[in-house]
């Protein structure tokens, strides 16, 4: 059982990304995460939402993303749910900056960044719904 649970539901437009960051920042701070962990979680959730908007919903703004922050004794979990296109983990390749620059690519770092910023990132597709879990453990010290 989580200690606290807070949800935010947004329309799938990048206009809402700052609202998402503020929401995450507020609750991650209230959950006593360190300032640098708060920043990392905010950014990871921003990346996750931007990916849902661009890829799962193909930049259509009339869909919904549900963001829920669950705090536990040892960790904070951000759960994202959307009903967009499935993310194909099988074909996902870790990005290489040098080759992206050569190809003049402007994206492709979101998932990589999420994994670098969080302790764990889990993804599943169930009953037509995507669910991403971003997990940050509290400092062991």
């Amino acid at each position: 059982m989580s200690i606290t649970e807070h949800s935010l539901v947004i329309r799938s437009t990048t206009k809402n990304l700052d609202r998402v960051r503020n929401f995450v920042g507020r609750h991650a701070t209230a959950a006593s995460l360190s300032p640098s962990d708060v920043e990392n979680v905010k950014m990871a959730v921003d990346e996750a939402c931007a990916n849902v908007i661009e890829h799962a919903y193909a930049n259509e703004s009339d869909h919904v993303i549900e963001i829920t922050i669950l705090t536990f004794e040892d960790r904070l979990v951000v759960r994202l749910r959307d009903k967009g296109r499935k993310f194909d983990q099988e074909t996902y390749q870790e990005p290489d900056l040098a080759s992206f620059v050569r190809q003049k690519k402007s994206g492709g770092f979101g998932v990589h960044l999420m994994r670098k910023l969080m302790d764990e990132v889990e993804y599943r597709h169930l009953d037509g719904q995507n669910e991403t879990l971003l997990i940050k453990y509290r400092d062991a010290s």
Binding site: R21, D46, F100, K104, S106, G107, G108, G110, L113
Partner: peptide, 17 residues
């Protein structure tokens, strides 16, 4: 005060040219 990968992507897209 803040940058996400979309912002970094702009630099990636133009630097080579």
């Amino acid at each position: 005060v803040y940058i996400s990968s979309a912002g970094l992507g702009v630099f990636m897209a133009f630097i080579e040219e």
